[in-house]
């Protein structure tokens, strides 16, 4: 065989492997969407063979209409998108300013503080969930009804505890460390304040890390289950993942489950596709893996 043939063969094998991996990642998604159009009986019948991934048989939107009838899906999606959007926005602002202070500003105890923040990464949320619940149930809040005690059954109980987190601060600090230090120094000599440097120099150059942090935070928030289950009992504040419970009562309707899951996946896919380019650029340029 010639070198060209070898090269061609290697390329074919490489592509085959890549296609196979891509298919493996796509299968669950395809299965979910296809199944959402099938009646339960056919869905269970097809699940043991290749038909599970093919749009064949008796396809309809019945599962979707029944899912809407069973649960206030629009409300759940709104709640999740609202809580997620506010948390992501505030988190990007707070964590980027924290990362900025850790990277560019000299202050006593800086390294120790960063170490402590990084150490929080190894503490699982489940370990602090109960103390956090106790805390949240006793904290004061000033809202429409004046001063109230206890944060349970609200949007802010789902938002505030997740605005700052070690991973996002670390992501920003790492990215900022790789920005050319002379840009910051030039801005300082030119008379810019720290806030002006953050806003006019650092943030405009931080598109990739903003996208990465936004997507990671979005996924983490949108997939919240344990915490809202603990702190939200009223339907009006319930997010999508907790809403899944509505479909696992007596007589589980798998078609409806699939329709519900397909519906709540749409915002995630839309958000990812919107930021995809910057997200991939960030992974490529910083080596930060999502």
């Amino acid at each position: 065989m010639t070198t060209n043939d070898n090269h061609g063969l290697r390329l074919i094998v490489r592509y085959l492997v890549l296609i196979l991996i891509a298919l493996m990642f796509c299968f669950p998604l395809v299965f979910m969407i296809i199944s959402s159009f099938k009646p339960d009986q056919q869905l269970l019948l097809d699940s043991g063979n290749i038909r599970a991934f093919l749009p064949v048989g008796d396809l309809s939107f019945d599962n979707y209409s029944e899912a809407f009838a069973r649960a206030p899906i629009a409300l759940f999606i709104f709640n999740s998108v609202f809580v997620t959007a506010i948390t992501v926005t505030l988190s990007l602002l707070l964590c980027s300013t924290a990362g900025f202070a850790f990277t560019f500003m000299e202050w006593r105890g800086r390294k120790l503080a960063l170490s402590i923040i990084l150490a929080t990464l190894i503490v699982p949320f489940q370990a602090i969930a109960i103390p956090l619940l106790l805390l949240a149930s006793k904290l004061p809040w000033i809202g429409m009804d004046g001063l109230t005690w206890g944060w349970l059954n609200s949007y802010h109980v789902q938002i505030i505890p997740f605005i700052a987190d070690g991973l996002t601060i670390y992501l920003f600090a790492q990215y900022f460390k790789d920005l050319p230090g002379e840009l910051i120094e030039a801005a300082r000599v030119e008379g810019a304040s720290w806030w002006q440097i953050y806003r006019k120099v650092v943030m405009p150059l931080s598109g990739p890390v903003l996208a990465t942090a936004a997507i990671l935070k979005f996924l983490a928030m949108y997939n919240q289950y344990l915490w809202p289950l603990m702190v939200v009992q009223e339907e009006g504040y319930r997010p999508v993942m907790v809403g899944l419970q509505y479909f696992f009562q007596l007589n589980i309707a798998w078609g409806e489950v699939m329709a519900y899951l397909s519906l709540i996946t749409v915002p995630v896919l839309a958000f990812y596709l919107y930021l995809q380019k910057a997200f991939i650029a960030s992974i490529a340029s910083t080596g930060v893996k999502g």
Binding site: P180, E182, L183, E185, A186, A187, V189, E190, V201
Partner: peptide, 10 residues
């Protein structure tokens, strides 16, 4: 005012 080796223009 300072001019840097790497230019440091934004």
């Amino acid at each position: 005012a300072m001019v840097f080796q790497s230019y440091a223009i934004f």
